[in-house]
Each structure stands twice: as C-alpha cells, then as structure tokens.
Computed example of a mutant assay.
Amino acid sequence: MFDYHMHSSFSADCPVPMEDMIKGAIQKGLTEICFTEHIDYEYPDDTIVFDFDKKEYASKLIEMQKKYEGHIRIKKGVEIGVQPHILDKYDELMAKEVFDFVICSMHTVEKKGLHYGEFFEHKTIEEAYGIYYAELLYCVKNYKQFNILGHVDLVKRYTKKTV
C-alpha cells in the first residue's frame, strides 16, 4: 500500500516533521510514500507562504531514504496550486527541479482563496462551480507537467450553504 499525497513541515499547512510522517506510514503498513509538499504561488493570504527551500527538502529526503531503506520507499513530490495566469511559473519550477510525482491542484480561483469564502461572495453555487471548473479545465489543457489532479471537488468543501 502507498500514499502519494503526504505533507510534512516543509508545507505551510503541516507542522509534522518528515521523519514523524515516515514513522507513521511504516506503522500503518505503507510500503511506499511520496511527500508532495505545497507550492502555491500567489496564494491570496499573505500570512501563509506555500513554498519551501528545495535544497533543504531534497537533502532531508535523501537522508530519510537512506535511514529507512528496506523499511519503506520514499519519493520526492510536490503539490502545485495552479491558476491560469501563473502556469509559466510552474514551468520554470519544473525546469529547475526534478520530482517523482506532481499533484496539480487548484486552491485559488479568480485570485481568491477558496478556504475563506471570499470567492463565493455574490455568486450562486452554480456560478461559483462553473468558474472553478472553467479555470481548472484551462489549467489542465494548458499545463501538462503533472501526474494527477488533486481534490478536484475542493470547491465543494468550502461552499457556503447560504450561497
């Protein structure tokens, strides 16, 4: 069994050290994992920076791969937060970095975060979903450097019942 959507303290939304995540994965019987730390350029909340030190990340991964060799396979991944106007920034990232696995996710629509509800203001549910999926479709058609789409129904998680 494996898990390719794991975050550690390299992601702004996870305080758990990488080694603790590995130990937990081994305890659960996983045989292969991939850390897909968040990079979300232009995330609309200045209090959160969804980026990390790539050299430190690679170094820690190599250290953990060596330490846990024979117990679990550990891969290097990333979860990118796409938006139509910043796809070129992810092209630049992929030209510089090598990842075993890339998750393409959308956390921001119309340059507004889904998490805080601002995107949904003054829209019906149908309008909000239409815009979300139109932007996601644009990104999928115009950006190819990923392995899988992440939580394509994320918009549903943050939809206000009163929209």
Rank of each mutant, 00 (worst) to 15 (best):
M1N: 10
S8D: 08
S9H: 15
S9W: 09
A12T: 02
D13G: 07
D13L: 13
P15A: 14
P15C: 07
P15E: 15
P17L: 12
M18L: 15
M18G: 04
D20N: 10
I22Y: 01
G24H: 08
G24P: 06
G24D: 13
I26Y: 11
I26F: 12
I26H: 09
I26A: 11
I26N: 09
I26W: 12
Q27Y: 09
Q27K: 14
K28T: 09
G29C: 13
L30H: 06
E32A: 14
E37N: 09
H38T: 03
I39R: 12
I39L: 15
D40C: 11
E42A: 15
Y43W: 15
P44R: 09
P44A: 08
P44D: 08
D45F: 15
D46C: 13
D46Y: 11
T47L: 15
T47V: 09
V49W: 13
F50D: 00
F50S: 01
D51K: 15
K54F: 13
K54H: 15
E56H: 10
Y57V: 06
A58L: 07
A58D: 14
S59W: 04
S59N: 13
K60Y: 03
L61Q: 03
L61C: 03
L61G: 01
I62L: 13
I62M: 14
E63H: 09
K67F: 07
K67G: 03
E69R: 13
G70K: 07
I72M: 05
R73N: 08
R73F: 07
R73S: 07
I74W: 02
K76C: 09
E79H: 05
G81A: 04
G81L: 03
G81V: 01
V82I: 14
V82M: 12
Q83D: 04
P84T: 02
H85L: 11
D88I: 08
D88G: 10
Y90N: 05
E92F: 11
M94Q: 07
A95S: 15
K96P: 03
V98Q: 14
F99C: 03
V102A: 04
C104Q: 07
S105E: 00
M106S: 03
T108L: 05
K111F: 06
K112C: 06
G113P: 01
G113I: 00
L114Y: 00
Y116R: 13
E118F: 04
F119M: 04
F119K: 00
H122W: 09
H122R: 12
T124G: 06
E126F: 08
E126R: 14
A128R: 01
Y129W: 05
Y132E: 02
Y132G: 01
E135F: 04
L137Y: 08
Y138F: 12
N142I: 06
N142C: 05
Y143L: 04
Q145H: 11
F146R: 01
F146A: 01
N147T: 07
L149H: 05
L149G: 04
G150R: 04
V152F: 10
L154G: 02
V155W: 00
K156C: 08
R157H: 12
R157S: 06
R157M: 12
R157F: 10
K160C: 11
T162R: 14
V163L: 15
